[in-house]
């Protein structure tokens, strides 16, 4: 127990150490002239910008916009994926395979190409971005739900029958937790895809959002501010990932090593 704690602490320390070393290289590289300061900036110049970011109301608008794009997109995509996945589960194995193929092939389409069409339908609102994010999220979640539920051991299915559990109870107490190890990675993948596609689209088509803010500072030659935003986005991604891991471990306590 104490050993495990010690190991956890040293893992965290090592991770922080790696980041610190990279930041140090960045600073030294830019001071010594190996890295062009105009293109790459430096931590000592980015840091004050970073502080400024939080005091400027503009960025909070961008942040809010991104959070909404990702949040709404992920929530509706995950919901649609969950429902679709459960519907597919109810079908025969061969039908399921065919339909699942269609869902997966959605992933190969660069959905951004539909943006103009969505724009003409929904106008200059958040909706086109949210819809595209939702479709991007839906794919891995549908596949995850279908596969993870299909993989629930037969013995557990028999148990729910022998105990005469209602559908709801069986889902809540047996199938869902049994599916978590396979289901959760697809939710996590969905969330990261949502962030990537939302910020990417903001970059190109939006007038708000963190992606837009990066593009804007790039075009305005505000390199330091751009890096501050990039660092902020990276931190955001890490925080979300850590939070998702914590949720996953809470759902399946037996899997916490």
């Amino acid at each position: 127990m104490a050993n495990a704690r010690l190991r956890d602490v040293s893992v965290v320390a090592a991770r922080i150490g790696v980041v610190a070393a990279l930041v140090l290289c960045w600073e030294l590289g830019s001071r010594s002239g190996y890295l062009d300061p105009l293109t790459f900036s430096s931590p000592s110049r980015v840091a004050p910008q970073f502080v400024d970011l939080f005091s400027s109301p503009v960025v909070s608008v961008d942040l809010e916009s991104t959070v909404k794009n990702v949040g709404f997109g992920f929530a509706s995509g995950a919901l649609a994926g969950g429902v679709l996945g459960l519907l597919l589960l109810g079908m025969g194995e061969s039908v399921r395979g065919i339909l699942l193929n269609y869902v997966v092939s959605l992933q190969a389409i660069p959905l951004l190409v539909f943006y103009p069409l969505l724009l003409t339908i929904f106008g200059l609102t958040r909706l086109p971005i949210v819809i595209i994010v939702a479709v991007v999220v839906m794919v891995p979640v549908t596949v995850g739900v279908t596969n993870s539920f299909a993989a629930v051991p037969r013995s557990l299915v028999r148990l729910t029958r022998a105990l005469d559990l209602s559908r709801g109870t069986a889902l809540r107490k047996v199938y869902l937790p049994a599916a978590v190890p396979l289901l959760f990675p697809s939710l996590r993948l969905g969330f990261l895809l949502a962030m990537v596609s939302a910020i990417g689209m903001e970059f190109v088509v939006a007038s708000q959002g963190l992606g837009y803010a990066v593009a804007h500072s790039y075009h305005a030659f505000a390199t330091d501010q751009m890096y501050a935003l990039i660092v902020f986005i990276c931190l955001l991604a890490v925080v979300v990932d850590v939070a998702l891991t914590a949720v996953e471990n809470r759902l399946r306590r037996d899997r916490v090593a």
Binding site: P153, S155, R158, L159, L163, L165, V180, R253, D254
Partner: peptide
């Protein structure tokens, strides 16, 4: 019923597994 495979819920402690039929 008891099956050939123990059919335990791996995310529950031993005690909570045994208590499961009462819980539901």
């Amino acid at each position: 019923m008891v099956f050939q495979e123990a059919a335990l819920l791996p995310w529950r402690s031993v005690l909570d597994n045994v208590a499961f039929p009462l819980e539901v």
